[in-house]
Structure formats: C-alpha cells, structure tokens
Design a protein around this nucleic acid. Structure first.
Lengths: 181, 181
DNA sequence: CTAAACTTTCAGTATTTATTGAAAGTTTAG
DNA sequence: CTAAACTTTCAATAAATACTGAAAGTTTAG
C-alpha cells in the first residue's frame, strides 16, 4: 500500500466514523473510492489488516447503504466490489440513507407526540417547539427527495453554487413577488 | 414530567446520538428546547435521572457547540441554562460545528495527501479521486459559511425552498447564459 | 453428487465510549 | 475570612460497540 493510499484510508476511516459508519467500514469505502479496479473481500482484508468476517459484515452494510456494487468476474469464483458512482452521488446517497434511518423514525415519533392532547400550558409550549422541529425534518425529506432525482452532473453543479445560496433566496423572493403582481 | 415531554426527550436523545452527541447530551438539549423557562443543573439531573457530574460535562460540551446559553438569576446562586436561538438557528449551528470538528481536519489531511508526489499510476488515480473529495468538502465549507451569515428568518425561508432546488439550478444556468451573451 | 472454494454468521473477546459519585475546586453571603 | 452552596474533575466502573476466527452455509467445477 502506497503512502498516499495509507494516509487517505486512515483519515477517511476517521471521518467515516463520524458519519454513521464505524472506522473499518469507512476505511473499506475509502479504499474502494481510490482504487480504480474492483477488489475482492480477501484483498480488502489483507490490505486493511482486518478479519475476513469483518469485511463480510462491512460489505453487507454497504449493500443496505447502496454505496457499493458487486460484480462476478468471469473465471473467478470470488465476488468483486467497487464504489457505486462518483463522490457527489455517494455523498447524497449517504445523506438520503441517513435521513431514512435517523430522520424518518424521529419524524414518526414527533407526529405521535403532536397527536397527544396537551395537559397544560407547558405541554402547549412543548408542542409548538416540537411542531417546528417536525416541519424542519419534513422539509429535510423534501430536499433529500429532490437530490435523489438529480444526476451526478447536477449534484456537482448544486454543490458548486456555494456562496450563491443567499442570492438564490432573493431570486425566489422576486419570483414570488412577480407572481403576486 | 408529562407524557409529551417524556416521549419527546426519549426520541430526541436517540436522534442526538446519531448526530454527534451522546444520548444524554441529546436529551438535555431536547429538554431545553421544549422548556420555556431556564433550568438549572439540578433540575436537569433530576428530570432525566442522571448524575450531577454527567450534567456538568454535558453543559460544558454544549458551550463548545454554541447551543446553550447561561444566565445568572438574581438572588439564586445556581446557574441557569437554556437553548440558544430557535430550531432553525440551532440546526445550522450544529452543521457548522460538525463541519469544524469533522470536515476541517479531513480537509487538512487531504491537502497533505495531495501534496505528496504520486509514485505510480495507481497513486495518480487515487489523487484524482481525493481531489474531487477535497473540492466537495471545501464547497461544504463555503455553504456553511453562508448559512452562518443568515438569520433565523432567512434560514427558515431557505429550508422551505424545498422542492424548488432543482429549479434554482436552472435559474442559475439562465443567469450565466445571459451574462455570456 | 462431492469436494473445493468461497461467503456468512455469531459467540466470545477486545476496544471504545458513557456514567457515576466522591473529592477537589470555585464563588459568594455574611 | 469562612463556611455554605454550588460546579467541575476524574478514577473507577458500566454499557455499548466493534472485531475475530472458527463453524456453518452456499455455490460451482468437475
């Protein structure tokens, strides 16, 4: 493993551990991202010095995250794996999958709470705040849905909008005003 | 503690644990969000059935996350705490703080890797992918900076843009095209 | 059908992270 | 200044999470 690979994998794994995966899962994803060829489970285990069982578990997790694709190579009994799509697509896929796992259940719980009848003023205040949070999370779902419909090229353009965000809001405002007139 | 409070805190804590805090820290934040009055450390410990020491540590963490403000109440030796700002401001504050903690160090590590000389074709490929990731993370910084400049009202408007994201990109395109002509 | 080549599972263990509570530190009323 | 009222720290411990490797399961070549 080259110095570049080594260093990248280490840091990407570290970052992965803050983004919903464990260190090992992050490292495997990092390895796949910077490896042009497809790789098999044994190569992963050997490269990262982790057990074969651990690799198997990580690959299973990737499947549920829609981040890795599997290929059978002619004349080889092993399965081969590679990262699905480019970095922009992957970033938004992670966003959407996290939304499903984390936001969705919370949203459902908040809805239940909002249907409970308030017993006193404190409850009324609480429900107002919970309602705001509910709206915020629901809106996050709308955004994420929109991202899922976009292809890599558009996602990349969106990301590059950058400091134009503030302006975009103004544009929206103007459009609305025009409609009103 | 009312049924509403109880249920909300439980779920918000769960969500917090996926968003960079531990369960307890999340629960405390949840409690503060739905409590109109300021509360003191003892009340927090009692309400959530956790130790006084744990509360102290959580409050210290909140300070570094800029999510809680402290107030001295006249005629009381205890310190009182409450969530800083509304839910929109808090959401973007969490985003910015996570960026500082997680993206910033990765970005710095990636820059180092990009400065390392490639030893072979595999390294060249790796550096291309690393460069893409670097650009993506750098752009995340630009976005986050922009959010920090916005007030709650504008953040709320931004969030509500929702399904207009796709259209916004098209608008941007048209503007660019007009300039080019 | 059989055995070799592979993958998955999971109980046991290691590692990491969170919590407690007692001791040390700090602040303020009197 | 002193003691009471509070907050913080941190070593010990509990709890949660991750990892290993051997056993069980699956697939395919012959």
């Amino acid at each position: 493993m080259s110095a570049i690979t080594q260093s990248f994998i280490l840091h990407f794994g570290e970052m992965g551990s803050k983004w919903g995966f464990n260190r090992t899962v992050g490292q495997i994803l990092g390895l796949m991202i910077i490896t042009e060829e497809m790789i098999n489970a044994e190569q992963i285990a050997k490269t990262l010095s982790i057990s074969r069982g651990n690799v198997s578990m990580a690959l299973k997790e990737f499947q549920s995250w829609r981040l890795v694709k599997t290929v059978h190579i002619q004349g080889d009994r092993k399965e081969y794996y590679t990262a699905i799509g480019d970095i922009w697509k992957m970033a938004f896929t992670v966003m959407e999958e996290r939304r499903k796992r984390e936001v969705e259940p919370t949203l459902s719980a908040l809805r239940d709470v909002l249907l409970t009848e308030a017993e006193d003023d404190k409850d009324v205040y609480a429900q107002q705040r919970i309602n705001e949070l509910h709206d915020l999370l629901e809106q996050a779902t709308v955004w994420s849905d929109e991202f899922q419909k976009m292809d890599s090229a558009n996602l990349k353009r969106l990301v590059k909008l950058g400091s134009g965000v503030g302006k975009v809001i103004n544009i929206k405002d103007k459009l609305i005003k025009n409609k009103e007139n």
